[in-house]
């Protein structure tokens, strides 16, 4: 294998890893605040892709308008799911909310089959993202160049929001202590809704770019990426945003590189994430960047 081919694989790996990172953030943020694994998150990712598809094909919007509309709709949908399926169970045992999340996941998938149809749809790739580019001596499809760039821009925005704004501070406060946050006059329900909106927004960005990278959509496309990104969040240390990004990148790179260097194992490509999960749980159960949340004064 030449160095050029290696770089080509690497660009592919980093772009997949960036997508995983974007989706994993949604899992980790919701878990951080509600201690809930939002099993519907992978399906929200799928919806982001479909919304963009219909915006561009049925409604013939310019691609960037369509993408923005799709991202906005997905964020609103994420917030509605929280309101309808999770908020009424806020004071119920954790397992009830978990079951509700699994229910929402099945509901979205089944509705997807009914409404969108079970047959794959070809994603209408805008020219900008479908070009073959030459950087140095390597050829890459432009979408593989744009994915990490766009993911990075969204990450910077997210970090700013979390670390510098009052809402971000409230999110971090909520991840430790809901009751005290309430005592500060924080509208806890609103902050939780924002968190779902933000996570769903990032998942939608991921879903749209996924649609352009593997140019087809189908209602169950969110299942496997959803599982892998949940694993990415756990590997990085669930509740930790930097950890989720790191976990996503690691899983994406591991997956592509193993297939590239050990083609015999191609059939097992989905298994690597799970093997990594088992290893991490054995060696460092809190994840790479995770901390023990046991502390209480």
């Amino acid at each position: 294998m030449t160095f050029e081919i290696f770089l080509q694989h690497l660009s592919n790996a980093v772009s997949l890893g960036s997508l995983y990172a974007l989706i994993a953030i949604g899992y980790t943020m919701v878990y951080g605040i509600l201690r809930l694994i939002n099993f519907a998150h992978g399906d929200i990712f799928m919806l982001g892709g479909y919304f963009a598809f219909y915006a561009l094909t049925t409604f013939l919007m310019p691609w960037w308008v369509g993408f923005i509309v799709a991202i906005g709709l997905t964020a609103l949908l994420g917030m509605s799911i929280e309101k309808v399926a999770y908020r009424p169970l806020r004071d119920s045992p954790k397992v009830s909310v978990l079951i509700s999340a699994i229910g929402v996941s099945f509901l979205i998938e089944s509705l997807g089959v009914v409404i969108f149809g079970g047959i794959q749809k070809a994603f209408p790739i805008p020219d900008l993202f479908g070009k073959v580019m030459m950087i140095g001596n390597i050829y890459i499809v432009s979408v593989n160049f744009f994915i990490p760039v766009i993911a990075f821009i969204f990450l910077v925005g997210l970090m700013y929001l979390i670390n510098k704004t009052k809402t971000g501070m409230a999110m971090r406060a909520l991840s430790r202590d809901h009751e005290t946050a309430r005592l500060m006059g924080i509208d806890v329900d609103k902050v939780i809704a924002y968190t779902f909106g933000l996570g769903s927004l990032l998942a939608a960005v991921g879903g749209i770019m996924w649609g352009m990278k593997y140019p087809q959509l189908y209602p169950l496309m969110g299942v496997m990426p959803g599982l892998k990104c949940f694993i990415a969040a756990v590997v990085g240390g669930i509740g930790n945003i930097t950890g989720a990004v790191l976990g996503g990148l690691i899983i994406g790179i591991l997956e592509i590189m193993t297939v590239a260097f050990l083609p015999d194992l191609t059939g097992y490509r989905d298994a690597f994430a799970f093997i990594l999960l088992i290893i991490i749980l054995l060696v460092k159960p809190t994840g790479l960047m995770g901390e023990n949340l046991a502390e209480k004064v």
Binding site: S175, R176, E179, M184, G185
Partner: peptide, 30 residues
């Protein structure tokens, strides 16, 4: 709380993962 009836809970319950500045900002959240 916005009406001015405020509780300092038992065990202090400061947001340990936030800076002191941020804790004070959150006090004035509403």
């Amino acid at each position: 709380v916005s009406k001015g009836l405020v509780l300092v809970p038992e065990g202090r319950r400061v947001f340990a993962n936030l800076t002191i500045h941020e804790n004070l900002v959150l006090g004035a959240y509403a």
